[in-house]
């Protein structure tokens, strides 16, 4: 038997797990999979595996927040009908949005497209402080709101969770690609141009250490917990 979800994933070139989080773009996937690779080199086991996967909503205009919403609706619809012999669902899908204007709006409006989607259970916002897995959705929502209140005016994207030292090294090496910065309390959001983002990812793949990628690993750990797959074994 070829399950529907496996057939679709193969069609789209996705590496999925039992639980998969759909992210806005291919660069998000690239950061997270490289972080998993670095973790494997240090600890002998990946953090992205058959239990947990990340997949890009699309390339360019096909990705972004609309892409996440679109793919989430499609994959969840099919996952509901992809059952094993005992009638259990095989796969689960969630979504992760950047914390910018578009992402925050989509995060708040996602349930209008698919009313079964719940924030902090099925969709997540990349924030300066990701809430603990806790006992459930309500806990996470409260903690996320409380912990990120001070950062409400701060955008947050995947590049921001690279280590500070890595980002500063990049700025020193490529001063013409330096971003505009926005600092609130102890967090700084860097707004890179498209070209700078491409270069930053190249550098990350070429020279980042596990320490530089620790933020990514922590993010994966949280997402695994939110999606109901084992996560406590991950060392951060």
């Amino acid at each position: 038997m070829t399950s529907v979800i496996e057939a679709m994933a193969a069609q789209m070139g996705w590496q999925i797990g039992r639980a998969t989080v759909i992210v806005e773009g291919t660069s998000d996937v690239a950061y997270l999979t490289h972080a998993s690779k670095l973790y494997t080199e240090a600890y002998g086991q990946p953090v992205i595996d058959s239990d947990f996967g990340v997949a890009a909503a699309g390339h360019g205009d096909d990705g972004g927040v609309d892409g996440v919403n679109r793919m989430l609706v499609t994959m969840r619809q099919n996952a509901r009908l992809d059952l094993d012999e005992a009638g259990r669902t095989r796969f689960r899908f969630g979504g992760l949005f950047d914390k910018d204007h578009a992402g925050t709006t989509a995060f708040n409006l996602a349930s209008r497209f698919d009313p079964s989607v719940q924030r902090y259970r099925d969709i997540f916002l990349l924030q300066p402080v990701m809430p603990e897995v806790g006992d459930g959705t309500a806990d996470r929502m409260l903690e996320a709101t409380r912990a990120n209140l001070r950062y409400s005016q701060l955008d947050w994207e995947i590049e921001d969770i690279c280590s500070e030292s890595f980002l500063q090294r990049f700025e020193r090496r490529y001063p013409d690609l330096a971003p505009t910065k926005q600092t609130v309390h102890d967090r700084t959001h860097r707004n890179y141009t498209r070209g700078a983002k491409r270069k930053l990812l190249e550098e990350f793949r070429a020279s980042a250490s596990l320490n530089d990628a620790l933020g990514m690993v922590k993010l994966i750990k949280c997402l695994r917990g939110y999606m109901g797959v084992p996560f406590n074994h991950i060392q951060t």
Binding site: V4, A7, T74, N78, L81
Partner: peptide, 8 residues
């Protein structure tokens, strides 16, 4: 528009 089960 919710017609996604025949995508594959």
């Amino acid at each position: 528009h919710g017609h996604g089960t025949l995508v594959f």
